[in-house]
Design a protein around this nucleic acid. Structure first.
Lengths: 221, 221
DNA sequence: GATTGTAGATTGGCCAACAATCGTACCAAA
DNA sequence: TTTGGTACGATTGTTGGCCAATCTACAATC
């Protein structure tokens, strides 16, 4: 543990960005909600300039949109947006799974296995939000194992937009489907089979896609 | 053509961001170059606050980095970064090619063909920079045909980082390889064969990857 | 040589002000 | 009823100045 991480030295900009991002992802600030610079500034006890930078930041992340001189608002998503998020997420996660499998280590295997075990245990219970978090944790582990900073960043962006939709629609994952459906994926990565891992990762997400009743063509032929 | 695009009403922030981005991509501002807020402000005739937002913007795009209280600088890339850009670009372009093929129209075919023809003609000459631009235009056409805003945005980010490296290394594409190598890709898309288009797109980029003498494992098995 | 000031440069963040623009409500004319 | 204008309030766009926090490099000290 690095000492430097214990001393909170993050800029107010970053901290405020985290809070605002979290609020959007949690659904506290629902899609379409208007965000006024001055109001946020007072709310967070910061100046308008600082908030301004934060909003531009979140704009780049695709969480808020701005109409010139009119104002900021939390993004609203339509079917096209949902489709974009699904296809992108599946593709990025496919790449991550492939890379993770290709460079898997013993340590990586145990990390992955423990994340998977934890998810399975959570699926025994009925705390849907906990299951959702467990599922995300597993996926995040795979992304981390791919050791690809840009991939991780882009995946995070997609995931955040996805989460903001989920929260607004008040959806959770189906616990029966979540648990076992990752078995093949985890196995493929641990076995170091990149090609298969990629396929399984994409199948996982496109499978969920159909669950949502979307009309999109599955990415896996 | 939208009228709104004809009326120049863009904010100074956006215009400045474009200029600065272009300067980095062109290599005018080489990797590692220090960027001082006050200096840029005077240079562009803007206030420090405006420049500040622009720098944060470009930071989110991965073109500049900031060390707290120390300053901004144009990103420098190492082998890991190059590898990340290649893998990500290949994957994104693979998805784009697949989607473009799946929803190709007659109009799309002619757009693609004309971009391809133009590239071929440019390859007859010896203006390397023009060939490079033609190549980028073809790829951009494919991205546009996929009709996927988020994919386009992420591809643009990757491409910009890639270009900033290219400019710094003073590289151009090999005209002999560029021209014909896209034939199969264009054909697959026009034929509406998504799976094949995806494969060809990835092959194209990973082929170039090996050209650069990189040790990365090709994405196509 | 290693450590410890110290000074200058630069960012971090705040504030107040004004300009530009948008949205709306309202009024007038056809 | 519809169209057009206009006045107004709200909000963003942009500026300039200000001071604190921090980094960097270099000098001074042991």
């Amino acid at each position: 543990m690095k000492k430097s991480e214990l001393i909170s030295k993050r800029s107010l900009e970053d901290q405020a960005a985290d809070l605002l991002r979290e609020a959007i992802i949690n659904g506290e600030l629902p899609p379409g909600m208007r965000l006024v610079e001055m109001t946020l500034a007072k709310e967070y006890g910061l100046s308008r300039g600082t908030i301004r930078i934060v909003l531009h930041q979140l704009g780049a992340e695709g969480l808020v949109t701005q109409v010139p001189y009119a104002g900021w608002s939390v993004v609203e998503m339509n079917d096209q947006d949902l489709w974009e998020l699904y296809t992108l997420r599946a593709t990025l996660e496919g790449l991550a799974a492939r890379l993770a499998a290709e460079k898997i280590t013993e340590e990586g295997v145990s990390e992955l296995q423990s994340a998977y075990q934890e998810l399975l245990e959570l699926c025994e219970g009925d705390d849907l939000h906990a299951i959702t978090r467990g599922d995300l944790a597993l996926h995040k582990t795979i992304i981390a194992l791919s050791n690809h900073k840009r991939l991780a960043q882009q995946y995070r962006m997609v995931e955040n937009q996805f989460l903001s939709y989920i929260a607004a629609a008040n959806r959770t994952f189906d616990p029966h489907l979540v648990g076992r459906s990752h078995e093949a994926l985890v196995a493929a990565i641990c076995a170091g089979e990149g090609k298969r891992a990629e396929k399984e990762a994409i199948k996982n997400i496109t499978g969920f896609e159909e669950l949502q009743g979307m009309k999109a063509k599955p990415l896996l032929a």
